[in-house]
Design a binder for these strands. Structure first.
Lengths: 389, 389
DNA sequence: TTGACATATTTCGAAATCGAAATAATAATG
DNA sequence: CATTATTATTTCGATTTCGAAATATGTCAA
């Protein structure tokens, strides 16, 4: 694949837009400083981008001493992006305007026996739904579970959807909607969303730990998403850990994922443990667990504590290896609150040597169910470039 | 600290020199491609750098079809750099010419009760020794153990040298030798040496695992040294691991470092295990162990196998998290050969899921005792810039 | 030997960027 | 109210980089 050079003009304008996106409202001088370009150069590009309608004048404000800056901001009406997050059970879709503000969102659930083909149809209909008819569609981002080939836009493999193997996701959507489509692993999309809108905004080194059916993570280092040599970075589901009671080492995913926790609880109920937990369709669900936790059910709390401590140990290792400032935990498990979070923090504190003066924060994501979809949209936004139009 | 902008001219020339350094001999066109600059632009800079004596014409060669390239290479005589590696027990020093070829090297040992002050004196004398009198000294790089503040050039803390705390290493050497001095953690220096001269040359994502008195690692991601939020990345000595026989988790460094291994062996000899190992000054030394391994002493081999398996597990975790292509093991422990290396590889193979089609290599460093010093020199080389002279 | 063909390098006018000075717009001050 | 200080933005000639075409220098095949 030949690496063609992008006309330098567009490259600069692209990075100008990115910076404004990141800072919301900026003066020309501030842009000049941040991009290491002369003020005069920035002036030229900002003027051009305003002519083209991508930027607009913001309220000039900020009175210190000296001439006040005339702030520049994105023109929300310059177009829209769509982001899709495919979970094992749901498709979340969002559309955002050019200033990356939410326009519409929609969530549909996936039948448990749905095929890859069914899922793709569903995704297309969700895109159709959330798309605003009155704006130009500039790009689509999509986060999918499992392994992906982001260059080719192919979903390589995901075990929980029938036939999800070497699926040309990007090509299909590109053909249908006639805009650039960017594929990414969905946990990395979430990490990206945290970077843009969430708790990673001011933080350059963090991990977004997704605890759902499996366990995976999106890694941001020096402010950039890290993907690894074969786009497999962050796949820590298979980490071997010492489970507290057990002599043998076990896989992280088989002990501390939401699925594994619910499994352990279900097993406990069947064995007749003293607990207020009940079964629905033969298993403990997250809702049931949530209710039990609210009543401080001892068995449920104990199981969560065990899992939390293990996660705490895993986080201690990631922090030591990568010298992280933050670990953001995402996924439905965050609904359980402190019962799960506090044991993680405690264990982490125990395991980090004192020399780590700056103790890393462990926090829940606050972006809600749309995290992944917003991140996917950000993916498309990130790589979009102003064409001559 | 104000971020002053370097005149763009020097920035380009600097990156031209870096690229040539990396590729040894290159044509102007190849440079143009690699740096994404127009051939005409490269021509101007190469001509100028030749006039200034930094570059010279290489043998023009490489006959394919078309006009043959006139290769450009570094002029070795343009100056020299010095690199220092401070280990807990030794100071290694090297000088390299402008083309980064070894000029001289010298190793002196550090008295076990030496103070920070003694060590600094020793370092100064080593620099004086290895420095070539006939060339201009352009920079000094120095790798030291423990935590460092690379911006300030301060050795923050190292427990095994008396008084090694908040030591202004760079300032002292800068005052004495009147050239830029660059400080770094010594394991990161080693990782950098692998990147420049060793097995990291063609590999963009790897870890250099240093197993000595302690255990630490230097991390290279996307071709660049990763330092983390507070320059603490890679400090995995405190990782909690499940030791095979034990129920409690233990610190990696206390089980699998060279020090720990020798300690375990010493203990074993005292307890009268059946072994050919003997004690020298009340302890098993690496030399003794080495000899025992050569005779396939069962106790020694078993202990090494245990340690190797633990390291294998640790590597599996790092590989899964960071999707690495390679792990390079460095330190005196590599003298033990396959008895230590093979268990690592076996355990790693066991623990990696099949989906990791590209199995990462685990190899010993082949750079010998000068790794660290060469890496430190590379550190200075890396940031050096052509001044107008 | 000659004439494609291929690739490297240089040439040169156009475009982008710089840097320093000029200009603009405000607060603080006397 | 005028003046000074301070920061933002624009102006404009100088410098750097680009891009396309011209030129250089080899291989290969007829």
């Amino acid at each position: 694949m030949s690496t063609f050079r992008i006309s330098s003009q567009f490259h600069v304008e692209s990075s100008v837009i990115q910076k404004i996106r990141y800072l919301n409202r900026v003066s020309r001088v501030e842009l000049s400083r941040q991009l290491s370009l002369a003020p005069s150069t920035i002036g030229i590009h900002v003027d051009r981008l305003m002519d083209q309608g991508f930027l607009r004048q913001g309220h000039q404000q900020e009175s210190t001493s000296g001439r006040p800056a005339t702030l520049v901001e994105l023109n929300p009406d310059a177009g829209q992006f769509v982001g899709i997050d495919l979970d094992s059970r749901q498709v979340h879709g969002v559309s955002v305007d050019f200033a990356q503000r939410l326009l519409r969102d929609r969530t549909v659930s996936v039948r448990s026996n749905a095929s890859a083909e069914n899922v793709m149809d569903l995704i297309e209909s969700v895109i159709e739904d959330v798309k605003d008819q009155s704006r130009e569609l500039l790009g689509i981002g999509i986060g999918v579970p499992g392994t992906v080939d982001i260059e080719q836009g192919i979903g390589v493999h995901y075990q929980f959807i029938k036939g999800w193997r070497d699926l040309p996701v990007s090509k299909r959507l590109q053909d249908r909607f006639q805009v650039p489509v960017h594929l990414e692993n969905n946990i990395r999309s979430m990490a990206l969303a945290e970077r843009w809108f969430g708790q990673g905004k001011e933080t350059d080194n963090y991990i977004c730990l997704g605890i759902r059916a499996g366990i995976g993570s999106g890694i941001v280092l020096n402010g950039e998403l890290y993907r690894g040599a074969h786009h497999l970075a962050g796949e820590i589901g298979a980490w071997r850990c010492s489970s507290p009671g057990d002599h043998q080492s076990v896989m992280l995913e088989q002990v501390a994922s939401l699925e594994a926790i619910l499994q352990t609880l279900t097993q406990g109920v069947r064995e007749g443990k003293a607990t207020s937990l009940s079964l629905s369709r033969n298993r403990v669900t997250l809702d049931i667990l949530s209710a039990a936790v609210a009543q401080a059910d001892p068995f449920a709390c104990d199981v969560l504590k065990q899992a939390g401590q293990l996660i705490g140990q895993v986080i201690s290792q990631m922090v030591l290896l990568l010298d992280l400032q933050k670990v953001i935990i995402a996924g439905p498990i965050t609904r359980l609150g402190d019962v799960f979070l506090l044991p993680i923090r405690e264990r982490l504190k125990e395991l980090l040597p004192v020399l780590h003066s700056k103790e890393p924060e462990v926090i829940y994501s606050e972006l809600g169910d749309l995290v992944g979809a917003l991140g996917a949209a950000a993916l498309a936004v990130n790589v979009w470039q102003p064409h001559s139009r």
